[in-house]
Write a protein that binds this DNA or RNA. Structure first.
Lengths: 229, 229
DNA sequence: GGGGTACTAAACATCAGCGTTGACTACTGA
DNA sequence: TCAGTAGTCAACGCTGATGTTTAGTACCCC
């Protein structure tokens, strides 16, 4: 009697799905406490999988950590760029508000991936080789070089600022915003301020003629006289 | 002979200094791997102190964690605002390039405090009550309300963007910049781009009249016509 | 039905961190 | 000088994680 299904056995013949479940659980742990706190035991527990099974898929803790890292990297890329297939190469350039909304929605809907990415940035290794980061910078470069961005932009720095703050914001908000309505409102605040910032900056230029002088490249010179109007 | 100083005993009559050494070591561990990885054993080892001594100062691991957190919070505040004593209340407002340089230098010279702060932001608790954060926002508000910032700025969001990216940047850079010269160069790149961004934004406004329309508050309206010049 | 694959269960040795305890040392004050 | 106290240390038992091993069960396909 009920001998066949005893003791919560999984009976999963598909190793792929088990592997994914383990990686998903690993992502959750990773996003919670960072890569140093990732333990095989905890991951297996979360995945609802026997510890031995986890060790079957990933021989050591380090293997699991590395596999999780690259899996996360792939997932971020797919989640973010998956549905805009190969089109950005030559076709249209997304308008900045759409692109920003895309980024912010990604961050809000994927807090675990965001956290994992940020932990990776903070790790000693760095994410410079990350596919997602490289594509993001490349797209921003194309955008800027297309004449839509100011010519003396430091694209990498701007990419870093926008990316890191957009991914960190929902985390920061989640820590002290009550309901989902409040969170959505905070999300809007971020998008609005970011758009405002990229459109106009934050300083009243009239007060700082010497800074305007110093920081405006030769091409932006015509802009300096403007605020006086 | 040499019985009195046997076995590397510390012979430290001053508990304050021992406590500081422990806290300093705790900060190092905290900055390295995050709050979840903070272990009394590792901290004691780093501090060159017996584990028992650490337990005398901080009865449990949690006590050490909390004490470290508030100590770090205090240190960030002091390190950043310590030498501008009470003067910012009514007297002068620092020019934005000086303030930014101050922030960036702090981040570069105190990577551990920066990392600790960022880990705190990423923790579930949040840093909203942090003295440093509150003062930073307050100063920025005074600055903006003094007419030096655009009127429709969302100060909190802008504070978050500038603070988080300024503190995260040196960490990101440190992960893949070779010498100190390269790091200094990267630091300058960040400051330049940040100044450029706050002065001018990142978009060529001519291309986005509808965005300019949408995101410019009533007070900034006179600025819209400017770029056409 | 038999063999291979995927998973579970349980036990083991090893190691590291936690928290406690008792003893040792140095300074203090009567 | 001598007891008391504060600071420090070494050792102990406990827990939990790592990685390995062995035995066993369910499933699939030939």
């Amino acid at each position: 009697m009920s001998d066949k299904s005893r003791s919560g056995r999984r009976n999963n013949t598909n190793p792929e799905s088990t592997r994914r479940e383990i990686l998903q659980a690993a992502l959750e742990v990773l996003a919670k406490d960072g890569p140093e706190s990732l333990s095989v035991t905890e991951v297996a527990r979360r995945a609802g999988v026997n510890r031995g099974t986890a060790y079957q898929h990933f021989p050591t803790r380090e293997d699991l950590a590395h596999a999780t890292a690259s899996w996360v990297s792939e997932r971020i890329y797919d989640e973010f760029y998956g549905d805009m297939v190969e089109q950005s190469e030559l076709s249209k350039v997304y308008p900045p508000d759409v692109a920003l909304a895309r980024l912010c929605n990604f961050a809000m809907n994927n807090p675990e991936l965001s956290r994992a990415w940020l932990f990776d940035v903070m790790s000693t290794q760095g994410v410079v080789t990350d596919r997602f980061w490289k594509k993001y910078v490349k797209e921003l470069s194309q955008f800027a070089e297309g004449g839509y961005g100011r010519e003396n932009i430091d694209v990498e720095v701007f990419a870093f600022i926008s990316l890191s703050s957009a991914l960190l914001w929902p985390i920061w908000v989640g820590a002290h915003a009550k309901g989902s309505k409040a969170r959505a409102k905070m999300q809007k605040r971020f998008m609005d301020e970011m758009m405002r910032l990229t459109l106009f900056g934050s300083l009243t230029r009239e007060h700082y003629p010497e800074l305007v002088e110093r920081y405006s490249g030769p091409v932006d010179a015509e802009d300096d006289a403007a605020p006086a109007a």
